[in-house]
Design a protein around this nucleic acid. Structure first.
Lengths: 343, 343
DNA sequence: TCTATAACTTTACACGCGATAAGTTTTTAT
DNA sequence: ATAAAAACTTATCGCGTGTAAAGTTATAGA
């Protein structure tokens, strides 16, 4: 029950009976002071309402305790989820996370980095938009401030990258689909916004060829990040015009698959493994809603716990060890097959 | 193409040929200086790389330009969307939005407010958790810092509240459902986390009675914010045990409805308006995903453009006019019926 | 051209803390 | 008990701004 407000550390030092530099030391690391003085300070904290002024702190510290966290689109629950786990890890390490969303726009991405520059963060975790990103400006930023990329890789930007092993995960699901039915066609956007989409395209071709199957692509038009909408509209057309070369469709990501599932439902095409189903649909990412589609969506679960953990570990190491790594570390984590009702 | 970096306003004032206090004035309001000096300063900004140090600024300003934006759960796309629109409005007004999510936890909500206190925001827009919130501590916070609530109201906390008119919107959809088929039963959680859920419960009863129908409740167990999961698991049970009193179900929110739709699908119960369907399901909120459920979800669209706009306007007025309003303003916006395939 | 006034300049201090140096006290190890 | 080490104290500076006072110059309106 803190009583009277105290306006600065000078005043707080006075009431706690400890000198100001020692109090300052305490706030920067409570373990760095003698136990007896720690007790005195904490007793004073109980009695009085005082918190160090964060602006004064940051003005004087060499490095702030801020870590920027930039995701391409918070409206996408996938990024909301990964951002949340990263936030927790950053807090646990005693740093202050600052979450920004680029809202699918390259200008917003740049303006996010500008905002971050203003707060002089110790480091930044950045999931870039991908193809749309202004990579020259991103590289410039990463040159000033320790930056780790995740989810989408841009060549030579940042000190490290952590993401999914699309070659492995796509191979996993292509093998599964081929083993259990007709080989899949690949449903994707003509001009994907995300580099992962390109990797998955390549991985699909490679897997199919390895299995002696001919790759088939269903490439649909559409711009932006409204993937469900694109999957739905183009899916409706594809089904109506009977453009599907096989009864099995592997979508480049779950959000397209969600749209396609909805299109199939409204078109009267039954999806799933059961008797009488005319279509199998699979996705990639294990979107939070994939469990609740009708039927539930067979997909690949990205190991975002690992991606998040390693990204945070790495930026912390960069910050605390001081300098940048000799070599840019690039690590791909394996995906896991999640078998559900749709394929 | 800014050239050499300049470390402080002193240096920048020197190269721009203007005195430091005037430069300071310029950065706080470019319109407050003479046109000829504005041109000189902006010319220097082109040639040199300088931005005022945000920590030094905020240490000395009476009020910062920060506005806190706290939502109960960013993983919920509904809140992600409303947060996004509010962010845009705050930026447009020349303020700096700071987005925090309480992740469904009361402790996190409090710690978010503590983080905000540390940055001394000019004002805060807060969507509280609701029932779980520590409303005493929230009230204490709102007492220190101008605060506007949205989405979920807590009595006498904050200077104003903006949200949906649950009585109107529930009446709208209950009337629609009664007009077009059997009167709905109300599917909800036994102990909802959100005050809106209580309002909707009451509104449902009132509407049904007004229409001369007997209200029926399906109250399911479940804790936390994993509504889809709860809707799915309990929905599966309810369908299996044939506990539905009518063929029409109105869910307290879309996320429960999404789970229930999934349960119905897996249970083989056809949902919708078409021939041969045995169930109608409706929701509330117009969740971004509601368009893509199978069948697409009939629901109520909250006017979150209005809620966001009025909330931001109000907090800005409070900040700029200085003092708090005479009376706590409480405004409910009407919902709109969105007719889709499920009911 | 003159004058009122708005806008500028210089000077100075305040903000609240981090950091460091030099001296003093307390704790730990022998 | 004693010396060395650790932790404290006082004193002082620096950070990059906001802000205010007092004096000076530019601008607008007559």
């Amino acid at each position: 029950m803190p009583g009277a407000k105290i306006k600065n550390m000078e005043g707080f030092a006075a009431v706690s009976g400890i000198s100001r530099p020692t109090v300052s030391k305490y706030f920067n690391d409570p373990g760095s002071v003698r136990k007896s003085t720690r007790i005195k300070i904490e007793a004073a904290l109980e009695r009085y309402d005082y918190r160090p002024n964060i602006y004064a702190i940051n003005q004087n510290r060499r490095r702030t305790k801020n870590i920027g966290l930039v995701v391409p689109n918070l409206t996408d629950p996938f990024f909301a989820a990964i951002a949340r786990t990263m936030e927790g890890l950053i807090l646990a390490a005693g740093y202050n996370p600052l979450l920004l969303s680029s809202h699918g726009g390259a200008e917003q991405e740049i303006s996010n980095l500008d905002s971050l520059r203003a707060i002089k963060p110790a480091g930044v975790l950045l999931a870039p938009l991908g193809r749309a990103s202004n990579s020259a400006l991103l590289a410039e930023f990463a040159d000033e401030i320790p930056t780790v990329l995740f989810d989408a890789n841009l060549e030579n930007v940042g000190e490290a990258f952590f993401g999914s092993d699309n070659a492995q995960s796509i191979d996993l699901i292509v093998q599964y689909l081929c083993r259990t039915g007709e080989p899949p066609a690949f449903f994707e956007m003509k001009n994907p916004v995300n580099p992962n989409a390109y990797r998955r395209r390549t991985a699909y071709t490679a897997s199919m060829e390895r299995l002696g199957q001919e790759p088939h692509f269903i490439r649909v038009n559409g711009e932006g990040w409204d993937f469900e909408e694109i999957g739905f509209r183009q899916g409706t057309r594809v089904i109506a015009e009977k453009l599907l070369p096989t009864n099995t469709v592997l979508c480049s990501n779950d959000r397209l698959a969600i749209g396609l599932l909805s299109a199939a439902f409204e078109s009267g095409a039954r999806v799933g493994l059961e008797e009488g189903c005319e279509l199998r649909i699979a996705g990639h990412d294990d979107h939070p809603f994939a469990r609740y589609t009708c039927p539930s969506l067979t997909t690949i679960s990205q190991d975002y716990a690992a991606i998040g953990a390693r990204s945070v570990e790495t930026i912390l190491a960069l910050i605390e060890e001081g300098k940048s790594a000799k070599e840019r570390e690039v690590t791909f984590f394996e995906g896991r097959l999640v078998m559900r009702g749709s394929a």
